[in-house]
Nucleic acid binder design. Structure first.
Length: 111
DNA sequence: ATTCTGACGTGGG
DNA sequence: CCCCACGCCAGAA
């Protein structure tokens, strides 16, 4: 792994860690914040790697539709959903309701 | 070294 | 509104 990539991953974790309780964000938003808006996939990949890190709440990161696309990667089948619901997020059929209300934009709130 | 796939996003038909 | 294709980067077979 190159240093630059490491930095990229590190940044992803850094942002992910800052996601407030009961809030969610999208891969694209994070990627954009990192300056790699066209590499949203890499953010997801980073999340996959983040599985080793307990500090990274990957369950708070969903796609722009508010769909829990990555729930399949979690331990159970609906662990991700349960974690979010536990934070007060309403999810129906793997989809977050009132996404705008829960959405956390790194630019707006983190900057 | 080559090919495919993947927790995405955007754009065009 | 639905479906398809492309771009992007990295890792695994």
């Amino acid at each position: 792994m190159k240093e630059e990539n490491k930095n990229f991953f590190e940044k992803v974790y850094e942002v992910a860690k800052k996601i407030p309780f009961g809030r969610v964000t999208s891969y694209g938003a994070i990627a954009k914040h990192l300056g790699a808006a066209r590499s949203a996939r890499m953010v997801g990949w980073a999340m996959n790697a983040s599985h080793n890190m307990d500090d990274v709440p990957a369950h708070r990161v969903v796609n722009k539709q508010g769909l829990l696309t990555g729930k399949h990667h979690f331990d159970g089948t609906n662990l991700m959903q349960q974690l979010l619901e536990n934070e007060g997020v309403v999810i129906i059929e793997n989809q977050i309701q009132n996404l705008e209300k829960y959405f956390w934009d790194p630019f707006t709130e983190l900057e």
